[in-house]
C-alpha cells in the first residue's frame, strides 16, 4: 500500500458545481467545525497572554485589547506568584520537567525502534513457530489498562529504588509503547516489496546485513512514523508519572500545579501551551508518515 496523506489527495466528492443553498450549508458546517476545534484552544492561548484582571473580568473578551508575555516569563523564571501556604512554585520546575519529558521520550524512541523494530522485522519476514501467537498477544496487550498493573510496579520500583527517577518511566512506559511500535512497524515491513531482499540473498548477503544495509534505508518513513508515535505516547503519559514519580514530567507537573489551592490560571495556561507545542509540532511536521502508518493497519 502506498503512503497516504489526508491533506493532499483530491477528494472523491464535490466535483460538481453546488447550488447556493448547498454552498451556504457547506460553509456553515465548516464554520461550526473550526469553532468546535479552535474555541477551547483560542481560550487557552488568550488566557496565557492576558492578566488575571482581564481574565476575571465579566466582560471577558475573546479578542483582548492588550496582551502581555508576563505569564510566560513567570513560568520560565520561576516566580508564578503562588507564594501562599501550600503552593508549589511551578515556574522553577517547568523547564526541568520539560527536560525530563524529552529525556524519557527520547530514550524510549531509540530503545523501542531497536527492540520493536527487530521483532517487527522478524514477524514480517522470518516467521517462527509461535510467531503468530506472539503477534496476537502483542495486539491484545494494547488494551490491558495500564492502571490494572500499576500496583506491582509501584512496589517493585520502591524496592529497587528507582521511584521518582526517569528510569521508573523508561521501564514502565514499555508496557504500551512496545506493542504499539511492533504493530506499526510490522505493518510497514509487510508493505515493503520482498524482491530487494531476495536479490540481496542471491548476492550472498547475510540476514542481518540485508536488514541493516538494504531494508533500513527504504524503511525510513515507517521508522519515522513509529518514532513519532512512541514519542507522542511517552510525552503525553500521565498516570504512571503521577503514581511512580513526584511530578517528574510535564503532565504530572501540570496536574500538581492545578491541584494547589493558591495558583494562577494565567500561568498554568502559559505552561499548558508550552506543553502542547512539542507534540503538535512533531505531528504537523511528520503528518504524512504518521497518518499513513496509522491507516495502514486499519483502512482496507
Amino acid at each position: 500500500m502506498q503512503r497516504q496523506s489526508i491533506f493532499r489527495k483530491p477528494a472523491a466528492g464535490g466535483r460538481n458545481s453546488r447550488s447556493l443553498v448547498q454552498s451556504v450549508a457547506l460553509y456553515a458546517g465548516v464554520a461550526v467545525f473550526v469553532l468546535w476545534i479552535l474555541l477551547p484552544v483560542w481560550y487557552l492561548v488568550i488566557s496565557s497572554l492576558i492578566t488575571p484582571q482581564q481574565l476575571g473580568s465579566r466582560s471577558f473578551s475573546f479578542f483582548p485589547t492588550s496582551i502581555t508575555f508576563d505569564n510566560y516569563l513567570s513560568v520560565l523564571t520561576g516566580s508564578t506568584g503562588g507564594a501562599g501556604i501550600g503552593s508549589t512554585d511551578i515556574g522553577s520546575r517547568l523547564l526541568p520537567a520539560i527536560g525530563q519529558s524529552f529525556l524519557v521520550s527520547s530514550i524510549l524512541v531509540v530503545l523501542n525502534l531497536i527492540v520493536a523494530g527487530a521483532a517487527a522485522y522478524a514477524l514480517s519476514r522470518y516467521p517462527f513457530p509461535g510467531s503468530r501467537r506472539f503477534e496476537l498477544a502483542v495486539i491484545a496487550t494494547r488494551v490491558v489498562p495500564a492502571i490494572a498493573i500499576i500496583g506491582p510496579f509501584f512496589v517493585a520500583f520502591r524496592v529497587i529504588g528507582v521511584l521518582n527517577s526517569p528510569w521508573a518511566l523508561v521501564i514502565s512506559y514499555n508496557v504500551f509503547t512496545l506493542p504499539l511500535a511492533i504493530m506499526i512497524m510490522k505493518n510497514y515491513f509487510d508493505q515493503l516489496p520482498r524482491e530487494v531482499e531476495e536479490a540481496a540473498k542471491i548476492d550472498g548477503a547475510g540476514r542481518l546485513q540485508t536488514l541493516l544495509i538494504i531494508i533500513l534505508p527504504i524503511a525510513r518513513p515507517g521508522l519515522v512514523a513509529a518514532g513519532v508515535l512512541i514519542f507522542l505516547e511517552a510525552w503525553s503519559e500521565f498516570f504512571y508519572s503521577l503514581v511512580l514519580t513526584n511530578q517528574l514530567t510535564v503532565p504530572s507537573l501540570l496536574a500538581g500545579f492545578q491541584s494547589v489551592q493558591q495558583f494562577n490560571w494565567n500561568a498554568l495556561a502559559a505552561a499548558t501551551v508550552m506543553s502542547m507545542i512539542p507534540p503538535v509540532l512533531l505531528v504537523m511536521v511528520f503528518q504524512r508518515n504518521v497518518v499513513g502508518s496509522l491507516t495502514a493497519g486499519v483502512g482496507k
Binding site: 491533506f7 473550526v34 476575571g56 495556561a269 503538535v280
Partner: peptide
C-alpha cells in the same frame, strides 16, 4: 490540519483545558 491539534494534545492537557474553559468564574 486543525484535526491534528486535539489528537496530538496530551489527554491530561485536554482535561485541564476544558476544566478552565468550562470554569464557573473565569471560563470562556
Amino acid at each position: 490540519g486543525l484535526l491534528i491539534i486535539p489528537w496530538a494534545t496530551p489527554w491530561l492537557v485536554i482535561g485541564i483545558l476544558w476544566k478552565w474553559y468550562a470554569d464557573g468564574s473565569v471560563g470562556g
